[in-house]
Design a binder for these strands. Structure first.
Length: 266
DNA sequence: CTCAGTGTTCAGTG
DNA sequence: TCACTGAACACTGA
């Protein structure tokens, strides 16, 4: 379920368990789709013996800093996660790579539907796909004025614009719907028509939602009960919010969009 | 058996 | 070139 909060949670997990440790071994699955531009075995031999100094993230992209380049970079696609465990017996289903450090800690990246990617890059932040990302709402939220300028140039529906990673890095489908619901903005509104007050509201909701989701380690059961999140799954025709307002479903920019007509007026 | 899907990329169109 | 749309990708689980 990887959007910004999930990926940030895994970044912190990786840093907590791996930073300052040396890689003793790397196991890989021979998957030519998920391993992008690098043979799995070459990926493994490149990492072996290196020390992990930090874990970084921008948007939904995550990478490790090592004591020597190149560095590994991960994207999870629609599925996948990081898992940390101690015994090979606990290797998770759909694992693609497992990194074991000298103290026996193991971290696996899983990717069931194979839309994720594992790369080896000399300088991840300055190379695609990371160099193409826009601002990250957890790391560097722009001012309302700058945001207004960006949105003024966009003709498409605000929902679609929120999903544009070259503008809002890390915002995914549920986050976009949640922000628009809490900011009371209709998902079809052309981005350039948002009033300055609406842009300011969208910005502050985006920041608050991302911070809260990260604070609870992206554990959906700890999201506030007032969030649309809890009512958007399954496209149930009888879905209502915690206040009893009907939840509607439509497709915008090819993505399922949940919204609340009583709150989000055109 | 059918089909939606928490993502990204790329071809095609205007 | 830009802005935008829709299909393709690959596979699980409902």
């Amino acid at each position: 379920m990887p959007e910004l909060p999930e990926v940030e949670t895994w970044r912190a997990l990786a840093e907590r368990h791996l930073a300052g440790k040396r890689i003793a071994s790397v196991a890989t699955v021979p998957d030519p789709i998920v391993f992008s531009g690098i043979a799995p075995r070459r990926f493994a031999s490149s990492l072996r013996g290196r020390e992990i100094t930090a874990a970084h993230r921008r948007g939904k992209q995550l990478w490790f800093a090592l004591d020597r380049r190149p560095w590994p970079a991960f994207h999870f696609g629609m599925t996948g996660s990081f898992r940390v465990y101690q015994s090979r017996r606990d290797r998770p289903r759909f694992w693609k790579v497992e990194i074991r450090t000298e103290d026996g800690t193991r971290l696996a990246m899983t990717n069931a539907r194979r839309l994720g990617r594992i790369r080896l890059l000399d300088d991840p932040p300055t190379e695609p796909p990371i160099s193409r990302l826009g601002f990250d709402p957890f790391l560097d939220l722009p001012t309302a004025a700058r945001l207004r300028t960006s949105l003024e140039a966009r003709r498409g529906p605000i929902k679609t614009v929120l999903l544009d990673q070259s503008l809002f890095a890390g915002v995914g489908n549920w986050l976009a719907d949640e922000v628009l619901y809490q900011a009371r903005i209709h998902p079809q509104r052309p981005a350039y028509t948002l009033l300055p007050s609406e842009v300011a509201c969208l910005r502050s909701k985006l920041r608050a939602i991302v911070r809260k989701a990260v604070a609870v380690e992206a554990d959906a059961s700890r999201f506030p009960t007032t969030w649309l999140f809890h009512h958007r799954w399954g496209k149930r025709p009888d879905a209502v919010t915690s206040r009893g307002d009907r939840v509607a479903f439509t497709t915008i920019g090819g993505r399922t969009t949940a919204w609340v007509p009583a709150v989000q007026k055109q």
